[in-house]
Computed example of a mutant assay.
Amino acid sequence: MNVEQLNAGLSEVREAHRFDEGALRAWLRDHVPEAEGELTVRQFRGGQSNPTFRLDTAGRSFVMRRKPPGVTVPGAHAVDREARVIGALGKAGFPVPRIYGLCTDDAVIGSWFYVMECVEGRVFWNARFESVAVEERPAYFDAMNATLAQLHNFDPAALGLDDFGKKGNYFDRQIARWSRQYLSDEAAGRDANMDRLIEWLPANIPPGDESRIVHGDYRADNMVFHPVEPRIAAVLDWELSTLGHPLADFVNHIMMYRLPPAILSGLRGVDIAASNLMPEQDYIAAYCRRTGRDGIDHIGFYRAFALFRLAAIYHGIKARALRGTAASAHAEELAAHYPLLAQLAWSEAEAALTKGND
């Protein structure tokens, strides 16, 4: 199955994620006046971490994101953080859904959740933009590029997000975080490439540091495009957002060029010129121009880190699938890619050793 077949559309609420819909309806009545009348709840097929639901009422539709039921890894599934960053960015004019309410009372439906606007538009499940006219595709790439640059140009303090994460030593902290989650979740087992990366990455962090708001999972299928224009109407899925190094966020995004189609519908092996997609080097140059950079040194490290982090996320998906708490019904199929991601990450580390700063 491709990523669209795995994730597109809605289904009945899965057995593992069912909750008291009457309790939710009562909460909406008290906290979201716009949610009037009968309530219909369906679950989005996509989403590997926080289960996501469409809430249809008499006059309006909403989206609910909740923590998954059961035991969760400390620090993960922070829906309160998602709601906070979305709310702050929306006030600054960044394209995100409107937040209607956050519930931190487990007694309502069994876990914390928030309700936001259901933004109508187009979701492209891969960066090939195959349903878009060939001559228009560069404009869609440029929209993704410009929107991420806009995010990274914000001053967190000006948005009231100066305390949204720790400042400084971003890579030290991130490597430690994902290493800890990988090592603590024994259900999915160990991988020799991951073990090598846990040693190599901390010893090869580039000099210098920056602190900006980072999305953490910025890719084509985590955004809603305008119904007819090459413009982003809403950026979704802010679970991994924090204060961090913008180059980590950007290089994680451009992994679309390095990943095979089987993993997040990557572009590896795609004829970029024939598909009229923006070449990787042009994409990097456009981002650097928009953020006032001369270029990106040490990009090999950033690539290895991005793939290590993604491998750690897939390791968590595999563990949740084995425990029966995964948000997606197709978690086992996705988790099968985990060893390849670890291999690709170590390959980038080896290439960085050979090429130096790239």
Results as ranks from 00 to 15, higher is better:
301 F>L: 04
293 R>W: 14
191 D>W: 10
203 A>K: 11
253 H>F: 15
277 L>Y: 11
192 A>T: 05
277 L>D: 06
222 N>P: 11
261 P>Y: 04
205 I>F: 07
194 M>N: 05
173 R>A: 10
254 I>W: 15
240 L>C: 03
243 L>M: 01
181 Q>V: 08
198 I>T: 04
219 R>N: 09
218 Y>R: 00
229 E>C: 04
233 A>K: 05
251 V>N: 01
188 A>M: 12
252 N>K: 05
187 A>C: 11
298 H>E: 11
221 D>K: 06
196 R>S: 14
294 D>F: 10
276 N>L: 06
303 R>T: 09
242 T>I: 02
210 E>H: 13
220 A>S: 15
174 Q>H: 06
239 E>L: 02
215 H>D: 03
187 A>T: 12
296 I>Q: 13
223 M>K: 08
303 R>N: 15
252 N>V: 03
269 G>E: 03
183 L>P: 08
188 A>D: 12
277 L>E: 09
198 I>W: 09
255 M>S: 10
292 G>L: 04
174 Q>K: 02
257 Y>K: 03
199 E>R: 14
233 A>R: 08
198 I>R: 07
229 E>G: 06
192 A>P: 14
233 A>L: 00
259 L>F: 10
204 N>H: 15
204 N>W: 10
206 P>L: 00
279 P>C: 07
303 R>W: 13
240 L>P: 07
230 P>K: 07
216 G>F: 06
248 A>P: 02
265 S>Q: 11
189 G>E: 06
272 I>Y: 05
290 R>Q: 14
238 W>I: 00
196 R>F: 15
276 N>P: 12
179 S>A: 14
219 R>L: 04
284 I>T: 06
286 A>C: 08
200 W>F: 11
293 R>Q: 13
285 A>Q: 11
298 H>A: 07
300 G>V: 02
280 E>G: 00
256 M>H: 05
202 P>A: 04
218 Y>A: 00
211 S>V: 14
189 G>T: 01
296 I>L: 09
254 I>P: 10
242 T>D: 03
173 R>H: 13
231 R>I: 07
178 W>G: 00
178 W>I: 00
270 V>K: 05
244 G>L: 01
269 G>Y: 05
185 D>T: 14
181 Q>T: 13
260 P>T: 03
179 S>I: 00
272 I>L: 02
254 I>R: 08
262 A>L: 11
235 V>G: 04
228 V>W: 14
229 E>L: 15
270 V>L: 07
245 H>V: 04
218 Y>H: 06
263 I>H: 13
